[in-house]
């Protein structure tokens, strides 16, 4: 496997297929395409490979993968990675495909949120429930402060120097950023709903030390309201056991985990039905030729949102993708058990 760091930033990457989403179905699609000599780049918004399996339930057992009576989300991801190793796909993690535009030569130009561009003959959308995005606390008017005073991630630490910061949450993100930003911040308050933290014990301990030394404040309670004007935050209201408290801050970092949103896919001009992409059941192609949708993101009569359905869809998609990528080559159906050319590709000796 290759990671995107191997590429020069800013250059346009030419490839056969871009798969959007590195979940189990996207990974298996690499295998099916690989057997047909098709080269693949994968893009995923998460910082890891495996999609929901890795993000939502890495340790939860799955019981309905054929041939694997029980396998965890992470184990399945690891097994698939082992299976696709011979095909050396390139992964672009922490990136989201924002734009797709059709070129005159029939290929597609894809752009990601960090500026990576792909010129590809075929696009495979394997985006599951959509892209994982940070949860936005349902507080009235919060949108107005996003990007100026409310941030769901830290891209540049220096941005937070001399700010009066409120960090909300009790997991690793909340605690790690508390420790990293405390030395830069003018003041820092950590707000969590209970005096119990899921985060790694040593970071919790360090945080408690800072509180004991008066270098930051820990509040047990929940965020209730944001106050300010012109997208500049001036204060927050917090509900604690003692009642409501309003105090001045100009920066809030809420860490409430991730949720799945369809995101930019809805702007790509594809037919959509209830946030899903309708496809045919022969090729799993969308309303736009050369753009396929496989796994949980697609819809067709009788669709079951099972990983195994996505595997089947990946195999059939690959057959059709082959005709777009190698229009002059006849595709001969072969079995991995008996075909020496397939076994050679898989590195079987």
């Amino acid at each position: 496997m290759s990671m995107a760091q191997d590429q020069t930033p800013g250059q346009t990457i030419e490839t056969d297929v871009v798969i959007i989403g590195a979940g189990p179905v996207g990974l298996f699609a690499v295998f099916e395409l690989g057997l047909l000599d098709i080269k693949v780049h994968l893009v995923d918004i998460l910082d890891k490979i495996g999609g929901q399996c890795a993000e939502l339930y890495p340790e939860k057992p799955i019981y309905d993968i054929p041939g694997l009576p029980v396998v965890t989300g992470q184990e399945l991801t690891d097994r698939l990675m082992e299976q696709i190793k011979p095909f050396d796909p390139t992964f672009h993690l922490n990136e989201r495909v924002d734009e797709i535009s059709k070129q005159d030569d029939g290929r597609f130009l894809l752009k990601t949120d960090v500026g990576t561009c792909f010129l590809t003959k075929v696009v495979v959308i394997g985006a599951g429930g959509g892209s994982f995005t940070p949860k936005r606390p349902p507080i009235e008017g919060i949108e107005a402060y996003e990007g100026t005073s409310v941030h769901y991630s830290v891209r540049r630490m220096e941005f937070f120097r001399d700010k009066d910061i409120l960090i909300v949450g009790g997991g690793d993100s909340a605690l790690d950023w508390t420790l990293s930003l405390q030395p830069l911040a003018k003041t820092l308050t950590l707000l969590h709903r209970r005096d119990d933290f899921r985060a790694a014990p040593h970071t919790v301990e360090k945080m408690r030390e800072l509180v004991a030394n008066g270098q930051m404040r820990l509040l047990i309670g929940q965020m209730r309201g944001l106050h300010g004007s012109d997208s500049q935050l001036e204060a927050v209201t917090v509900k604690t056991k003692e009642g409501e408290e309003r105090f001045p801050v100009n920066t809030v970092l809420p860490f409430f985990g991730l949720t799945m949103k369809l995101g930019p896919i809805s702007d790509w001009g594809l037919n959509l039905h209830e946030n899903l992409i309708p496809v045919d059941t022969e090729k799993f192609e969308t309303s736009e030729p050369r753009i396929f949708a496989i796994g949980d993101i697609n819809a067709y009569p009788g669709k079951l949102k099972l990983i195994l359905s996505g595997f089947h869809e990946a195999a059939l998609m690959a057959q059709k993708a082959h005709s777009y990528i190698f229009p002059d080559k006849k595709l001969l159906f072969q079995y991995t058990t008996s075909s020496s050319s397939l076994q050679k590709k898989l590195g079987v000796r």
Partner: peptide, 11 residues
């Protein structure tokens, strides 16, 4: 479940 409730709103 308590850990996961940290991700809910107005707990």
């Amino acid at each position: 479940e308590e850990d996961m409730l940290d991700f809910a709103f107005d707990v």
